[in-house]
Amino acid sequence: MPSPARDSRSNDELIRANRGFYESLWADAHLMDPQRFNTWPLVRELVATAPRRLEVAPGLRPRLPLEDTCFIDLSHAALRQLRARGANTAHGMIGALPCASASFDLVCALDILEHVADDEGALRELARVAAPGATVLLSVPLHQHAWTAFDEFVGHCRRYEPDQIMTLLAQHGFTIEQSAVYGMQPKSSRLLELGQWFLVHRRQRAMWWYNRVFMPLGVRFQKPLQWRDGMGDTQGVDELLLRCRFSPSD
C-alpha cells in the first residue's frame, strides 16, 4: 500500500525528487528512436492526420517522431540530446505548458501523471493545449495494492484504480477509446532491488549495463500492443496505455 510519507510530499518536493532522478538518469543515457518502441505502429497511423504534435516529458525515450513534434521536458540533459537530433524543444512541466491553447492534434504524455502531486492540474493543462477532437496518449500505473519500493524510487506519487482514472479523465473531457497493457518494468522484485542498489551505489556501471544490455533487450523483446475497446480487463495489469479522444465540455 502507498506510504503516508509519500502522500504528504509537496509538489515542490516531488519536482525536486523527479528532477534529481531523471536529470542524472538522462545525463548518462542515449536517445532511443521512436521507431524502436511497440507504440510506433499506432503513432505512425496517428501522425498521418495530426500535423500539430506535442510530447510531454519524453526524456530520451520519445514515442512521437522527432521531426515536427514539440517536446517539453524538465530535464536539460534530455533536451540537449533531443535538440542535437533536430527536435523542437522547450523547457517546462506538465502543470504549466509553454504552449498556446488548442494548438495540438496529437498529445502524448506517458508515465507522467503518477509523478505529479496535482494530477488534475496536469490534465487541465493537457486539455487546454489539445484541439477539439485531438488524440491524447497517456499511460498510468494501476492498483494501489501493487505499490512497491520501485514506485517510490522513481518518483511516483500514486497508482490509479481503474474507475478512478476513468472518472478523472472524463471530468477533463477525455474519453478512453482504447487501451493496451503497457510497460517494460521487470516482474522480479529481486531484480528491481538489485537495479536500485546499483543506480545508487555503482551508478556508472549500472548505466553501462542499462544502455548496452537491459534497454536494448527490453526493446527487442517488447510484445506488440494488444488493443481493446475502453479500459478492458485490468485484473493483474500493472500499467495501461490509454488512447483518448478530447472533447471540450463548452
Rank of each mutant, 00 (worst) to 15 (best):
residue 22 Y to F: 15
residue 79 L to K: 04
residue 98 P to L: 04
residue 207 M to A: 12
residue 88 N to S: 14
residue 121 G to W: 08
residue 22 Y to D: 05
residue 170 A to E: 09
residue 219 V to T: 12
residue 29 A to H: 08
residue 202 R to T: 12
residue 49 T to S: 13
residue 211 N to A: 11
residue 166 M to E: 14
residue 243 R to P: 05
residue 84 A to I: 01
residue 224 P to G: 07
residue 41 P to Q: 01
residue 133 G to C: 07
residue 177 E to S: 10
residue 224 P to Y: 10
residue 94 I to V: 15
residue 3 S to G: 00
residue 246 F to D: 09
residue 21 F to R: 15
residue 112 I to K: 02
residue 232 G to Q: 08
residue 126 L to Q: 08
residue 75 S to L: 04
residue 37 F to N: 03
residue 141 P to F: 08
residue 32 M to I: 14
residue 180 A to W: 07
residue 85 R to F: 06
residue 24 S to D: 15
residue 210 Y to K: 03
residue 62 P to S: 02
residue 50 A to Q: 02
residue 113 L to V: 02
residue 141 P to Q: 07
residue 106 L to V: 05
residue 84 A to R: 10
residue 136 V to F: 08
residue 60 L to T: 06
residue 227 W to V: 02
residue 105 D to M: 03
residue 125 E to T: 08
residue 219 V to N: 05
residue 125 E to H: 03
residue 227 W to S: 01
residue 105 D to A: 02
residue 152 E to C: 02
residue 43 V to G: 02
residue 93 M to Y: 13
residue 126 L to R: 07
residue 79 L to S: 04
residue 17 A to Q: 13
residue 211 N to D: 14
residue 74 L to R: 14
residue 150 F to D: 06
residue 202 R to K: 11
residue 86 G to Y: 11
residue 69 T to R: 06
residue 27 A to P: 00
residue 21 F to G: 10
residue 34 P to A: 07
residue 26 W to G: 01
residue 233 D to C: 12
residue 147 W to P: 06
residue 147 W to C: 08
